[in-house]
Computed example of a mutant assay.
Amino acid sequence: MAEEQGFDPDSVAGMEGAGGDDVMDDWAAAMAEQEQVDAAAAATEVKPATSLFQDFSAAGAAQSVPQNLDMILDIPVQLTVELGRTKIAIRNLLQLAQGSVVELDGLAGEPMDVLVNGCLIAQGEVVVVNDKFGIRLTDIITPAERLRRLQK
């Protein structure tokens, strides 16, 4: 360490008459102090700061699931029921008027797709409840099936 700073203890030996003993005493004191600091650091056992971090173990996860789930329960999502789709040229789109019929690819009596934020999660049939349309879910798409459909 002393050589890194450009200090050579051997060169101090010739300075005894010009205060070289004082320099050597300071050097020895500094080395002794450093040895004490190193010994104290080695004797000190390092303990992890577990209280600073959230527990992600299986036991901790089981306890924190309801709390974490509560945080997202009020997030709004877009639920869409899709009757069918079609492609149409802009020329034909501009010719649409009241009473026009647009043919869709969905068949009559076929289950409707239920999408959440554009992702298919279920299928169902149209029902009327209190003069409003609704959907009765007939088939829920499993998470594995959703992943398979996304990979296509």
Score class of each variant (00 low, 15 high):
G124C: 07
L94Q: 00
Q98D: 07
V126I: 13
I88H: 03
E125P: 01
Q98L: 08
Q36R: 09
L79A: 15
V77H: 05
D105W: 01
K87R: 13
A30H: 07
V37S: 03
A42K: 10
A29L: 09
A62M: 13
D74C: 11
T44I: 06
I90K: 12
K47R: 14
E82A: 08
L137G: 04
I72P: 02
A49K: 12
D70Y: 06
L137F: 11
V116G: 10
L137Y: 07
L69S: 13
A41T: 14
L83A: 14
S64L: 10
A122W: 00
A49Y: 09
G124L: 02
P111Q: 01
A58C: 02
P66F: 03
P76V: 09
L120R: 00
M112S: 07
A108H: 07
I72D: 02
N92C: 07
Q63A: 15
S51L: 08
Q95W: 02
A30D: 04
D55E: 05
F53V: 11
I88F: 06
Q36N: 06
A61L: 14
A40G: 07
S64M: 14
E110H: 04
L137D: 04
L137Q: 06
I72H: 09
A62R: 13
K87M: 14
S64W: 07
L104V: 05
C119M: 15
Q78H: 08
V102E: 09
N68D: 11
Q123D: 02
G106H: 03
T44M: 11
G134E: 11
D38T: 04
E45N: 14
L69D: 08
A40C: 10
L94M: 11
E35K: 04
T80Q: 12
R85T: 13
N130V: 06
V129M: 07
T86W: 01
V128S: 11
Q78M: 12
F133N: 03
S57Y: 06
V81I: 11
Q78I: 14
R136Y: 01
L52K: 14
A59Y: 05
A42I: 05
A32R: 04
S57F: 08
R85D: 05
L83V: 15
I140K: 06
T86N: 08
N92E: 15
P76C: 08
N92W: 10
I88N: 06
F53Y: 15
L120F: 00
T50R: 12
N92F: 02
I72Q: 03
K87S: 14
S57G: 15
A40F: 09
N68A: 12
P76Y: 05
S51N: 09
I88D: 06
V77E: 04
V128P: 01
G134L: 03
N130G: 08
E33D: 10
I90H: 10
V126K: 05
Q34V: 03
L69E: 10
A28N: 10
V129P: 04
G124Y: 01
L96S: 01
I75S: 15
D105P: 00
Q95N: 07
D74T: 07
D38E: 15
G60S: 06
Q34G: 05
A32N: 09
R136H: 13
L115T: 02
L69G: 04
I88M: 15
L73E: 12
L52F: 09
G84E: 10
V114H: 00
A62S: 08
V126P: 00
M31R: 08
R85N: 09
D74R: 12
A122F: 00
